[in-house]
Write a protein that binds this DNA or RNA. Structure first.
Length: 284
DNA sequence: CACTTGACCTGTCCGC
DNA sequence: TGCGGACAGGTCAAGT
């Protein structure tokens, strides 16, 4: 999915677009992706949109919340003044030029103001209606973990986390119970930034390496956000436009290409079943 | 407890 | 032109 920069891009764009607007209807086309009662949501206004890790929380005026996880291929696309069928003028990956499309599984209507389309090719994502207590319970594991871009994201805290695991460092970076928001793209690129081999046991990292890794994570996440996320696959911004971070990949998806530092050729291997990209020349 | 594997889905791409 | 397999941004539950 959408990792931190992608989800944050969507959060910011939807905040601009729909905070203050009233949900006038919800059409659920694929029941398994919507957990809750439509009547708990219809008629409420969007008050605020929050993000924790890769999860979005839409706070509503009636005390309820829409909690959204996009998983691998979820898209949230806002179309102002959308009609029954809306031509976008440009294609969206796996969704096409017209919404709703065959991958559109939930549609939120905001009267005449527009529609929010939830598209999801692989149908792994979900939207839940929860009260504040429910949100607290749902997000509790994520609050045990550290959020990048907060004061808690220190090399001391990372050192503490890493010292408790012998797993490959890349898997620990992607473990949402430990650090939230980092997924496969940014884990690969952050390790390249820090010149660390993704297979290294987490507890083998030296304090200097941990600090470089902390800086690398912040750097690539910031850059991802600056470019509106990475549209290598299904991801699009809330506007329906692609992000551009894929034009700035360091190692991710760069197998066979020259290392951006010129230290060799990017190689691919598997860690925990996930594609992993690194430069044997500079990542030790 | 730490860690690994398969499951959830649909689509694309690549080699035979 | 099929057809099979690998692969795709993420978690879960059920194994060892």
């Amino acid at each position: 999915m959408p990792e931190l920069p992608e989800v944050e891009t969507i959060r910011q764009e939807l905040t601009e677009a729909i905070v203050g607007l009233k949900i006038t209807d919800i059409e659920v086309r694929l029941a398994k992706q919507f957990k809750g009662e439509k009547k708990d949501v219809v008629g409420a206004k969007i008050v605020k949109i929050l993000r924790r890790g890769k999860v979005l929380v839409f706070k509503l005026s009636n005390g309820k919340n829409l909690v959204v996880h996009l998983k691998l291929t979820g898209q949230l696309v806002w179309v102002p003044k959308a009609g029954e069928r809306t031509t976008l003028g440009h294609p969206i990956p796996f969704a096409g030029e017209e919404l709703p499309s065959k991958t559109t599984h939930i549609i939120f209507s905001f009267d005449k103001k527009g529609k929010l389309f939830y598209n999801d090719l692989r149908q792994f994502g979900w939207i839940k209606v929860l009260d504040d207590k429910g949100v607290e319970a749902e997000l509790a594991p994520l609050y045990e973990a550290i959020e990048p871009f907060t004061p808690q994201f220190t090399s001391q805290n990372l050192a503490e986390i890493f010292s408790r695991s012998r797993r490959p460092i890349k898997l620990v970076l992607m473990d949402q119970a430990k650090i939230v928001g980092v997924g496969n793209i940014y884990a690969n690129d952050a390790l390249w930034e820090a010149r660390i081999d993704p297979r290294r046991p987490a507890n083998s990292l030296e304090p200097k390496e941990i600090e470089k890794l902390r800086q690398g994570i912040v750097k690539v996440l910031k850059e991802g956000l600056k470019y509106g996320g990475a549209s290598e696959n299904a991801y699009v911004r809330a506007t329906g436009e692609p992000g551009a971070y894929q034009e700035h990949f360091r190692a991710y998806q760069m197998e066979g290409e020259a290392c951006p530092r010129g230290d060799g050729v990017i190689r691919r291997l598997k860690i925990g079943g996930r594609g992993t990209f690194y430069c044997p020349g500079c990542q030790k």
